[in-house]
Amino acid sequence: MTGPVAIALDINGERVDAHVLPRLNLADFLREHLKLTGTHVGCEHGFCGACTVRVNGDIVRSCLILAVQLHGASVQTIEGLSDSGEIADLQAVFRDRNALQCGYCTPGMLMAAQDLLKQQPEPDRERIREHLSGNYCRCTGYQSIIDAVETTARMRAGHRP
């Protein structure tokens, strides 16, 4: 095993310098080194989507990408999206629709939903389902989550919820 490697990157708008082991994945880097524990680890195999974050504008599974690959990158996590207010409306509708129960999948679900809403102004329910199909929720049964994303899309497009 080789020793730590220096990386410098932007996380939620803050410049971060760190030394990381080559085998450290981004999820563990965020959670254990930076204490950004809003990014959750559910499977560590890229299936469950709980660890979804944004890297250079695209959503990725942070358990499947190594921290050393991110030198110079810009990373945004649920903490960043929450504090900037970027998803305040989406979060408000999640609350109104009770689109979360235990909350463990929710940060990843919000990251994936916001990704879709940025790409496509008014996705239909099928499109929402497809885009969230890589994010597992074991509590809600998904209906309220789809409702919340659909409602947010309509509100952003200037329609009534």
């Binding site: 959670r31 950004l36 524990t37 809003g38 990014t39 959750h40 680890v41 996590t77 649920i78 903490e79 929450s82 979060q91 999640f94 609350r95 009770n98 979360l100 235990c102 909350g103 463990y104 929710t106 940060p107 919000l110």
Partner: peptide
Amino acid sequence: VPRPNLERLMQGRGLYVSD
């Protein structure tokens, strides 16, 4: 009635034992 812990969980400010 409003659930008191939703905001925390939605903002990544929950506290699970894993954390």
